[in-house]
């Protein structure tokens, strides 16, 4: 399962929908009687960072995760269009990281090298979380199925989009709001591209 419905349910919950359920097992669970089990992940909320600096650190870390995910999926998919798109998306996430790092420098009072930034500051934020592999284990995509992998990529991009929008809403700093919105918009474009790729595979 790709986790798209889970992310969608989460986005609705965050927008004031009173009662939202993710239908575990999706359409397969509905049509066949096979039990997929209820996902009980017990993961903590992203609290929403308070300062522009923390927002940017989390954003940087998220981009790293997206990039790692795409790079690790390239050898796993057989479809060439999917491989090319994943490579392109992985490259774009580097641009995002560069922008986020430069923004961080302009907020931070002391100068921090890129290496220091990654090793101490970003690594600390991500401590205790799931590795990309563990994340994959939760959603259990069928790595032979391009549709499953693209579906998972869509759910991760949607998660990123949602995160950036929430962070942009929360920050009172106009400049970082603008940057976060711009990145959110780019993640939405990625999501659309993945959607088109998915459409092309179903025909």
């Amino acid at each position: 399962m790709g986790g798209r419905s889970r992310v969608a349910a989460q986005m609705l919950s965050g927008k004031g929908f009173s009662e939202v359920y993710n239908l575990a097992g999706g359409i397969k669970g509905w049509t066949s009687e096979s039990a997929f089990g209820v996902e009980e992940l017990g993961l903590s909320y992203f609290e929403g960072a308070e300062t522009p600096e923390t927002n940017l650190i989390v954003a940087y870390s998220l981009e790293q995760g997206l990039r790692d995910f795409y790079l690790s999926m390239i050898p796993a998919v057989k479809n060439k269009d999917a491989r090319d798109l994943f490579q392109k998306l992985a490259d774009i996430e580097i641009n995002h990281q560069n922008r986020i790092y430069n923004e961080y420098l302009s907020f931070s009072e002391q100068s921090v090298s890129r290496e220091e930034f990654e090793q101490s500051i970003v690594a600390r934020v991500a401590e205790g979380g799931l590795t990309t592999q563990e994340y994959l284990n939760i959603f259990k995509p069928d790595l032979e199925s391009s549709v499953d992998i693209i579906s998972l990529a869509m759910s991760i991009e949607a998660q990123a989009l949602d995160l950036y929008q929430r962070a942009a809403d929360k920050t009172s700093d106009e400049r970082s709001k603008k940057i976060l919105m711009k990145i959110a918009e780019e993640e939405r474009v990625h999501l659309n591209e993945l959607g088109k790729l998915m459409d092309s595979m179903n025909t």
Binding site: G25, A35, V38, V58, A126, L130, T132
Partner: peptide, 15 residues
């Protein structure tokens, strides 16, 4: 890469 902080819980329900 660690992902924990990006995942939020949501009620799941089976068919």
């Amino acid at each position: 890469m660690r992902w924990k902080q990006f995942l939020t819980p949501v009620k799941s329900i089976d068919a």
